[in-house]
Design a protein around this nucleic acid. Sequence first.
DNA 1: GCCAACGTTGGC
DNA 2: GCCAACGTTGGC
Length: 140
Amino acid sequence: MPNYWLFKSEPDTWSWEQQKAKGKAGEEWTGVRNYQARNFMRAMKVGEKGFFYHSNEGREVVGIVEVCALAHRDSTADVDTWECVNIRAVADVPRHVTLDEIKADPKLKDMVLVNNSRLSVQPVSESEFRHICKLGGAKI
DNA sequence: GCCAACGTTGGC
DNA sequence: GCCAACGTTGGC
């Protein structure tokens, strides 16, 4: 069974619009310098889906992505320690699901987003994934 | 802009 | 191996 994920990005640095502009080819999710986050990326399989979340500005889930390349060396790092996957945009979340909504929803109270807000790549349970897709009107 | 939470570093 | 100091993230 597939796993689900959440990728966090500050829209000033790398936005959903920029991600979508990369189309089916997708883009490397570079810049992660945290072991937990890296290990989650190592566990990802091609085709697994996740949310694209805007941190700081927005604080909301804005899109659905899928993994399109397994973890490999992060070319922006000067050591071999850091790896990244590639992801591509697959669908918009037409009605953005905000952090406030997520926090207020009992079904989502165990999300890592709520309990460890600093982790930039994180797992999402299947029920959480489905629930947020439904709230956001996402068709995937 | 502030600061709490968290992860990492380095002295001992 | 402990823990204080420091840096970073991200919500507010």
